[in-house]
């Protein structure tokens, strides 16, 4: 299991989106972990996201945009 503690998280619309994004990032050699992100989401409740190394943020955003995977605005560093 990749140790991505201290990584960055992007919130996605669903578990299916998160798993699809994880697979696509995997093919680009960017390890990412699916996480549940209930604390975020503007008080709307449970969400899912991907946690990965912060150094890959620009790449991840670009790859997901190319694949039409919608990223919600929440983005934060673990622990912040």
């Amino acid at each position: 299991m990749d140790d991505l503690r201290g990584g960055c998280t992007l919130e996605l619309g669903s578990m299916t989106s998160a798993l699809k994004a994880q697979k696509i990032l995997g093919t680009a050699a960017i390890p990412a972990t699916v996480v549940k992100t209930s604390a975020s989401g503007g008080g709307r409740g449970c969400r899912y996201g991907l946690r990965f190394s912060c150094s890959q943020m620009a790449n991840v955003r670009m790859i997901l945009a190319n694949e039409n995977i919608r990223v919600r605005e929440a983005e934060w560093k673990d622990g912040s």
């Binding site: 619309g13 299916t16 449970c46």
Partner: peptide
């Protein structure tokens, strides 16, 4: 499992 604090059944496909 999505937006659990809302009354509306929301979320993306599927």
């Amino acid at each position: 499992g999505i937006n659990s604090l809302e009354a509306d059944t929301s979320g993306e496909l599927p």
